[in-house]
């Protein structure tokens, strides 16, 4: 065992890196295999949980009929519109409150009060206001994503090194230059954390909103499938959510690696290429 590990460590770099890349997949693959076996041998009833292969078939059929893409597109559109609205308002307020003490005094305590209301608790209110149309879902997503981006932008701007701001002033930077070249990059790490939280909340809110009332979207697809006991489609919907969430997270990671290339924690990649 010991010598096996040693020889594995001594393998050529590319092979080890390839093997390294597979490590995160070991557990998911093992789970799926176990699940398939359990479903095929009847250990789990198909009514409870269909086999992964059945889910795959359902996905394939849905893809061929165009229904899957339609639902995914509708959901993504809602998510992005809500994100754009809630995210930009949260970002703007975070910047203003982070930069100006008076703005913070004026609005921060109100915002903190609102923040402590779970946004999903206002669903009945939202339905009364907007009915069950698109606006209701977009509104919920916007409210949901608003707070993480607000909090993290605010915190990021507040904690920018005062010494750097003073240095910028000393070197005659205009307020605009000071914001774009000193304050915003200094807050970026925190803002990106806010965006990652925000994306998680975005999908969560959307799932709930679409499950309550919708005539299209992944949430609708799964609720509809439930009525016809199509467990494979229900599982498919859950997996699509997982994939979309993972995709959004990967995109943010990519942005992070680019935007924070200066950060020592992100320089491993650069060294890896150079070596």
């Amino acid at each position: 065992m010991g010598s096996g590990l040693l020889s594995w460590l001594r393998r050529p770099g590319w092979l080890r890196r390839g093997a390294d890349g597979l490590v995160p997949w070991l557990i998911p693959v093992a789970l799926v295999v176990a699940w398939e076996i359990a479903a095929r041998t009847g250990l789990i009833a198909t009514r409870t949980l269909p086999a992964p292969s059945a889910v795959l078939v359902a996905g394939w059929e849905s893809l061929l009929s165009g229904a899957l893409l339609h639902h995914v597109w509708i959901s993504t559109e809602r998510a992005l519109v809500g994100l754009a609205i809630g995210g930009s308002i949260g970002f703007a307020l975070g910047v203003v409150n982070g930069a100006f003490a008076f703005a913070e005094r004026l609005s921060d305590s109100s915002l903190q009060m609102l923040r402590n209301v779970p946004h999903l608790a206002i669903i009945p209110m939202v339905i009364l206001w907007f009915g069950i149309d698109e606006e209701a879902k977009i509104f919920l997503v916007a409210i949901g994503v608003f707070f993480p981006i607000y909090m993290n932008t605010f915190h990021g701007i507040r904690t920018v090194d005062r010494g750097l701001i003073e240095m910028g002033r000393l070197y005659g930077l205009s307020s605009g230059a000071l914001f774009w070249r000193v304050v915003l990059p200094g807050a970026m790490h925190s803002i990106l954390i806010g965006i990652r939280y925000e994306l998680g909340i975005m999908w969560l809110t959307l799932i709930v909103a679409e499950t309550i009332s919708a005539s299209a979207g992944i949430g609708y697809m799964t609720m509809n499938a439930r009525e016809f006991l199509q467990t494979d489609v229900v599982v498919l919907g859950i997996i699509i959510y997982a994939l979309l969430g993972k995709l959004a997270d990967a995109l943010t990671r990519a942005v992070e690696v680019r935007a924070l290339a200066w950060h020592p924690a992100y320089q491993r990649h650069v060294e890896g290429i150079a070596a």
Partner: peptide, 12 residues
């Protein structure tokens, strides 16, 4: 002015 810490912008 030079400070005790260099005060370089780490992202530039």
């Amino acid at each position: 002015m030079l400070f005790q810490d260099a005060r370089l912008l780490p992202w530039q």
